[in-house]
Design a protein around this nucleic acid. Structure first.
Lengths: 141, 141
DNA sequence: TTGCTTTTTAGAATCGTTCTAAATTTCTTG
DNA sequence: CAAGAAATTTAGAACGATTCTAAAAAGCAA
């Protein structure tokens, strides 16, 4: 066979995307990237992504899922969203935006509206603002 | 001895405050309340408060510190602030306000300025907004 | 291919937090 | 003040998410 076999679901675009981010396109990174970026914006936990990979027939260890999520985040492909002290969400939408969070069913949703935060004071001397996180906590009415 | 001995540092005000919150003023709750509320607004973790109690000569188990922090929170004496996936902060300032958070030294500071968030959309059908959390992440410039 | 480097992996370890069941304390009521 | 009931505290085990380890596997350049 002359051509290299491509992992199921693997696309050239995914490979390039990984390369562009400075990450070797390994089989498991490709699989995870496909799951993450193929279907619009998503919010995942490590556990969830790991399960999805399994269900899709990819074999990826949980440790690798954690590694990949952090590498993707550092590469700017993902953003971490902090809404619970107990575990982490990763968001494929890396543009500045805000979230609704429902504590009851642990669901995170992007807010599409244009929120503006005004009246921000100067940050403490010697520091600069890195990011402004806005989480709108909601509950069943 | 006719009068009941009061725990060191224990004040009548603390007793009443606990009673008003529907909590029995036990020795350990009194000790923790004194540490928390005696010196202006504070941000503590369970671990930190536990250590402080030890240092102050009170003997309070870590489990009790956790219990008390949650009870105080439910009673409206404290507010939980979520800025890290790894652990929880509790804030003695229960008025609506926002925070600076420095990830490098894990320091949380109240923002005293009057921040306003505008452009909030309707929450998803069947839900209502419970709280809007604003965390301004800062780092050494 | 060969060799060198990066990545993956299973499983152990860690960390903050919660749980458990027994001992202690508090708060009645007599 | 004593006795009993209920709430609280406690040490230590258990837990769940995450990180670490060190050995095996895969990727890549020549």
């Amino acid at each position: 066979m002359a051509t290299r076999k491509r992992a199921p679901g693997g696309s050239i675009k995914t490979n390039e995307r990984l390369r562009a981010a400075g990450l070797r396109p390994t089989r498991q990174r490709r699989a995870l990237a496909e799951l993450l970026f193929q279907h619009g914006h998503r919010h995942v936990t490590a556990e969830l992504l790991h399960q999805e990979a399994k269900d899709a027939g990819y074999s990826v260890s949980l440790a690798t899922v954690y590694n990949a999520l952090h590498q993707f985040t550092q590469a700017g492909l993902l953003q971490q969203v902090i809404v619970e002290p107990s575990h982490s969400y990763f968001d494929t939408n890396v543009n500045p935006h805000q979230h609704f969070y429902d504590e009851a069913d642990r669901r995170l949703t992007d807010i599409s509206a244009d929120i503006s935060v005004s009246g921000l004071p100067q940050p403490p001397k010697g520091t600069k603002i890195e990011r402004v996180d806005v989480v709108v906590r909601i509950r069943r009415a």
